[in-house]
């Protein structure tokens, strides 16, 4: 067997993690590294710091290991014994102090950023939003603006949003990777999180703490709007139009109003998501399906097959009723 070649091959194989890292690094357009808020930027900056330290240490230490293996690969007989070195205190001190020094350089930006991230919001006129986690959807209350919505969060670009986070049932975790790090929604206590969005756009997020059957389906969108769009959206939320009173009646007699609120109608249920202006949303069922009449109908017919474990009951609606409801709900815009 060709020893040289096999050594070469084995070195190559051992370098596999580094190769994989290369593949990954070739396009790090990863969401967590594409922050669109000051909050996300602060975290990403510390990451940028740390990744070079860790990659540097990784390469140096792995190369030392590989070098030792190749250099001291032995074909010698077993009666020969290498020099029996038991240790060298100066070296021990060196490889205690050098990592300690590196950690010092990691600790400084870390501690500074911890206090920045958890300090008061950077601006006085922050938009207050209360986020309540539910199995398995998101409630967004805008107390200053006087309305409530679900699963699609709208915030104006350039204005700090100050979130109060809690949960109605089990622990969830609020996470929009491009906005920044996550924070848990704990039942029985409140957490806070602020961020100032810097780029208009639509961003994906989902629950990051296991919360039961449909944890994977507890998704959300964040719309960072320019101020005019946000003002228009907020105004529509504050004074929603109810174009179809017959539809509203169907909504009431079908039992939907027991759980759902539609502002401006007698439907004032508080268990499920607020459906005010639901026709304006781009997605349904905690961002699981696009908001089209077909998907809306499918969701009404059998919530559980769209979102396993969904707490919305299957009301056994007949086709005519489903069509009426879809027409009514899609018209709420």
């Amino acid at each position: 067997m060709n020893r040289e070649r096999s050594t070469f091959l084995q070195t190559l194989l051992a370098a596999l993690p580094l190769l994989l890292m290369g593949c990954g690094a070739q396009g790090p357009d990863w969401r967590t590294l594409q922050p669109v808020s000051d909050f996300g930027r602060l975290g990403a900056d510390v990451y940028d710091d740390l990744i070079w330290w860790t990659l540097g240490i990784l390469v140096v230490v792995e190369l030392l290991l590989l070098y030792a293996l190749l250099r001291y690969r032995s074909a010698r007989s077993e009666s020969e014994v290498p020099s029996q070195v038991h240790g060298f205190t100066a070296l021990e001190i060196a490889w205690t102090l050098v990592p300690a020094a590196i950690l010092f350089f990691i600790a400084i930006p870390t501690v500074r950023t911890i206090f920045e991230l958890q300090g008061a919001p950077p601006s006085e006129d922050a938009l207050e939003i209360t986020v309540v986690g539910h199995q398995w959807w998101w409630e967004f209350q805008y107390p200053e603006l006087g309305f409530v919505t679900a699963n699609e969060l709208h915030v104006p670009v350039g204005r700090t949003a100050n979130l109060t986070l809690s949960s109605a049932d089990v622990i969830h975790s609020f996470w929009i990777p491009q906005i920044g790090g996550k924070r848990d929604l704990n039942p029985g206590s409140e957490n806070r999180l602020w961020f100032t969005p810097t780029e208009v756009g639509e961003y994906y997020g989902q629950c990051a703490e296991l919360c039961g059957t449909s944890h994977a389906n507890m998704r959300m969108r964040v719309f960072v709007d320019d101020s005019a769009t946000f003002a228009e959206w907020a105004a529509a939320m504050q004074a929603p139009a109810i174009p179809d009173s017959a539809g509203a009646m169907t909504f009431l007699i079908s039992g939907c109003a027991a759980c759902h609120t539609i502002a401006g109608t007698p439907a004032q249920g508080k268990v499920g998501p607020d459906l005010t202006n639901v026709g304006r949303r781009t997605t349904l069922a905690s961002s699981l399906i696009p908001n089209t009449p077909e998907h809306m109908a499918g969701w009404l017919r059998s919530p559980d097959s769209v979102k396993p474990g969904a707490l919305m009951p299957d009301l056994n609606l007949d086709e005519q009723r489903v069509n009426e409801l879809v027409r009514f709900l899609e018209g709420l815009r």
Binding site: T54, T110, A208
Partner: peptide
């Protein structure tokens, strides 16, 4: 171990936690 050092830094960890 090195990815563990990243998790030791909360500003970085809050992005990586539970992922």
């Amino acid at each position: 171990g090195l990815s563990g050092i990243m998790h030791a830094s909360p500003p970085v960890d809050i992005q990586q936690h539970d992922t």
